[in-house]
Amino acid sequence: MNLADIKKLSDLARIDMSNEEMEGIAKNFDSILAYVGQVEEASKLIDKESEVKDSQNYKLHNIMREDVATNNRGEYTDKILEDAPDTLDGFIKVKQIL
């Protein structure tokens, strides 16, 4: 990992960071990735048969609720806007996009 790799990640993650910090992270990443790379070794210990069974056992499914209104219009608006840094006429105000 080098500075350019970390710079790209900080852009993707939308986090402003100093070069000094990114250099430190580049160093940390090499040791962290070497450590977590052990999963590759672990996956070789798993036999194919149990792997198929596992993927069936641990299949995720969505939990849905009925598509109905759960509150009255505007019920929470004031409360929520209280936490917003910038508001205008009952809306949250944002900066120019482009």
């Binding site: 977590v36 672990a42 798993i46 792997e51 056992n57 641990y58």
Partner: peptide
Amino acid sequence: NTAIKVRNAIKE
């Protein structure tokens, strides 16, 4: 994906 596979095997 590898981590998820190993996680399921650890559960088992």
